[in-house]
């Protein structure tokens, strides 16, 4: 049995890695300028042809965007998995619970006060603001979650908080100048365009650190899955653990919103796909697996966003919603007769 499992996990991880490379190359390959696979490999690995246009396109535009999608996608999916674990609710996630919208709202307000472009704001301020917004909404959700236990009600509360935050954001955008409006509106739908190497570096470091911290909580998390009282009886300090879990989840979601705006449904869809793929919910497997799946999912969605209606571009949120929302509905319906 144990052996079978290890083989399954191994096989799943290897397939994910292969898929990652395929999508990476496919994404670099696709776009208004066609670049052959050989050329890509040469440019990436041997760094040849520095003066060619292809070199600039790959290194300055496509690669940072792709990697940003990979890093943020992983973070988003992991954040969703943490929230589902925390709330014991399969449809919890940063977008559905309104956490992303909260980050968006606070970020929009600060941007307008800063009276500049999102891109022109210092990255650290960006992330910090977004984190503040996330935590603010998280506290609201926690407050209601303590009062109502039902999964559907929690969802409604989250959607309402999300709507209120979006309304406030729209309201604030009225006070912005024209350049800001274009920029904010575009960003508030979620996009990976405009990713740059410096931003990518900051995002990668932040998310890597959070990922490692999350991985270190895998053991108590597995006990937490049996319920708080059992976890406590096994020697876990529940209060501290809950604070750690929720902070990590908010941090991940805040990073994503700060760099790419709110992106819908990845946080719900990906953990479930991953569970089906791996046949387990064990944190020690799920934490890396969900992150990998999230990366692939977002890269694929970004590819679709760029190519579906080329040359014009869809927002990433549109694509993830089309794919993710049906999964949420399926989960809601499927769970009913389990109770």
């Amino acid at each position: 049995m144990e052996k079978k499992r290890i083989i399954r996990y191994g096989a799943a991880f290897i397939s994910l890695a292969v898929l990652f490379v395929i999508i990476l190359i496919a994404s670099i390959n696709t776009g208004s300028v066609h670049i052959s696979v050989m050329e890509i490999i040469n440019i990436l690995l041997k760094r040849t042809g520095e003066e060619a246009a292809a070199y600039s396109i790959i290194w300055k535009i496509r690669l940072p965007r792709l990697l940003m999608a990979a890093v943020l996608g992983g973070a988003l999916a992991l954040s969703g998995y943490l929230m589902q674990t925390f709330f014991r609710n399969p449809i919890a996630g940063p977008y559905v619970l309104g956490i992303s919208s909260g980050a968006k709202m606070v970020l929009a307000v600060v941007t307008i006060i800063w009276s500049g472009h999102i891109a022109s704001m210092p990255v650290s301020l960006n992330v910090l603001t977004s984190f503040a917004g996330s935590m603010l909404c998280m506290l609201f959700v926690l407050f209601f979650a303590g009062k109502v236990k039902s999964m559907a009600t929690l969802l409604v509360v989250g959607v309402m908080i999300g709507n209120i935050c979006s309304a406030v954001t729209d309201f604030m955008i009225n006070f912005a100048n024209e350049a800001q409006i274009v920029n904010l509106t575009h960003w508030s739908l979620g996009t990976f365009s405009g990713a740059s190497w410096p931003n990518l570096k900051v995002a990668s470091v932040l998310i890597l650190v959070t990922f490692i911290l999350t991985f270190l909580t895998a053991k108590p998390m597995s006990a937490y899955q049996l319920g708080e009282d059992y976890a406590k009886s096994m020697g876990i300090n529940i209060k501290i653990f809950r604070i750690i879990l929720i902070t990590l989840a908010s941090m991940l979601s805040a990073c994503v919103t700060a760099f790419a705006g709110p992106i819908a449904f990845v946080g719900i869809a990906v953990p479930h796909i991953t569970k089906l793929l791996f046949g387990t919910a064990k944190p020690i497997v799920m934490i890396p697996a969900v992150t990998m799946c999230g990366s692939i999912f977002c890269m694929a969605c970004d590819l679709i966003a760029r190519t579906a209606l080329a040359p014009s571009e869809l927002s990433i949120g549109t694509v993830t919603s089309v794919i993710g929302a049906p999964i949420v509905i399926w989960l809601m319906v499927g769970r009913k007769h389990e109770r």
Binding site: K219, L226, D229, G235, K275, A281
Partner: peptide, 26 residues
């Protein structure tokens, strides 16, 4: 209280009892 598990076999549930004895990664 009844616990709700996800994709756990009975062996997995029982093995959780080893929690206080296992290493850092369980």
């Amino acid at each position: 209280q009844r616990i709700e598990t996800e994709l756990m076999t009975c062996r997995d549930v029982v093995a959780m009892g080893r929690y206080p004895y296992t290493d850092y990664f369980g």
